[in-house]
Each structure stands twice: as C-alpha cells, then as structure tokens.
Design a protein around this nucleic acid. Structure first.
Lengths: 108, 108
DNA sequence: TAAGGTGGTCATATTTTTCTGACTAATTGT
DNA sequence: ACAATTAGTCAGAAAAATATGACCACCTTA
C-alpha cells in the first residue's frame, strides 16, 4: 500500500496532484487551522465537529505525503503527536492569499 | 502559538469552493488549454483523449458558473461555441504559476 | 483496578464523482 | 439523400471519496 509507488503521475499537468491534495474534504480547514499553530489529532476532531477520525486521518496522511505538514512525536511525559506546516506548507499560505484576492475581486 | 480554542466553529473556508472547482477531474487540463487560446467542445474532447463528453460538459459548465470561463456563441457561417478564460480566469494564471513554483522548489 | 484520554486502524456502508453508451437537433459536405 | 461534424443531454453503471462504528494499545489519574 505504499502510495508513493502506485501514484498515477498527473502527467502534463504538474499542479493537478497538489490541487487535489489541497481540495479534499476537510483539507482547507485543516490547512487554515495548521496555519495558526500546531495541530493534535483529537483536538482537531473536536474543532471540526462534523468530521470523523477516518477522514481526518487520511487527510493528515495525504497532506504529510504531499509535504505540506510535518508530523512530530513529542517525547514528553504524556507523549503526543503534533502536525505543523512544513516550509512548503508555509509557502502555500501566500498562494492561498492570492487565491482569496482573486476570489474577492469581481473585476479581477 | 495561538491557543487552540476547541469551541471555535469552523467558519466557512472561503477558498474551499474555488479549490474544488479548480481540482475536479479534467479541470486543470482544461484550464491549461484555455490559457493558450479559446476552446471548442469537440476539439477539447480530442485533445483529452481519455476524457468523455459528459465530464467535459460538466467541467465546462462548472468553470463557467465559477466565472473562470466565458462561453460565447459565435454567430458565423457554421455557428459554433467558444470557451475562453474570463478576467478572473486570467487572474488565476498567476496563482497557478506561484503554485507551480512552490511545487518545484524543494526548499520552499 | 477501572475510567478516560491519547492517536489511531479496520471493515463496511453511504455518498459523490466520473464514465459509458445511446440519443438529439441543427448544419454542412458529397 | 446520406454521412459527418457541431454541441451537447440523459439514464444508468462503475469508481472514488467520505462516513460510521467497532476495536486496539498505550498512558495517566482516581
């Protein structure tokens, strides 16, 4: 099940894969929350009350594979896990901003 | 690190809709081709040999509704139809370029 | 020792998206 | 008249994405 090998290369359109990774269900919201600080699984589940474990798990994994998020195991007393934007993820913030500008400008 | 308030309702993500409109199947390719010049239905169908009428029809309609494409009926001898990027659609080109830059830069 | 929180997986539904093939209707070319 | 091209629509099937609920292992607190 190594998704890396079985990936259909979106030949011809380089950004197709990234667009899909960004637009899957819950992903924009996850991104938005991650932009505000590191995420933890159960907390995220509570912040997105209509979502579910499975979908969030898949979304986080795919965003991690796309190198938008970095997963860190925090080796502390109660040992937990954090997801935060990678450098690539942070670079995406500007793209989102530009996208939002296009969206809001009717005379674009 | 802004504290995570878990009672925050996830107010609508403004770009979510646009992201979905841009990432649906064949849409990135359609966009790419539209950026090179006006499109015609059957020609598009031939340029995307793995696609199909129905999906292209839906994609074009949705991109038109999202105001990325403009549909024009050309009142000429054999009377045909053209799809071309709207001003908003053209504004998206820069966003795509930036997206591509993020994608290509491993140290982003 | 039991209860509750952590961060998940798994098999199975359900829902949404995409594809297939048949069909339409107007126009042009042979 | 007949075939082909234009630009689609429609119903139904197949495939993909998403949701549900059960379960798991580890750790901490009461």
């Amino acid at each position: 099940m190594t998704t890396l090998n079985e990936n259909n290369p979106p030949e011809g359109c380089p950004i197709e894969g990234l667009l899909k990774t960004l637009s899957g269900k819950w992903k924009p919201q996850i991104f938005q929350l991650a932009a505000q600080g590191p995420l933890r699984f159960n907390s995220l589940l509570r912040q997105l009350p209509q979502s579910n474990k499975q979908s969030l798990s898949v979304a986080l994994k795919e965003m991690e594979e796309a190198e938008l998020l970095v997963k860190t195991i925090i080796q502390q007393k109660p040992l937990h896990i954090e997801y935060e934007l990678s450098s690539k993820g942070r670079a995406m913030i500007e793209v989102f901003r530009q996208l939002e500008a296009v969206l809001l400008n009717p005379t674009a």
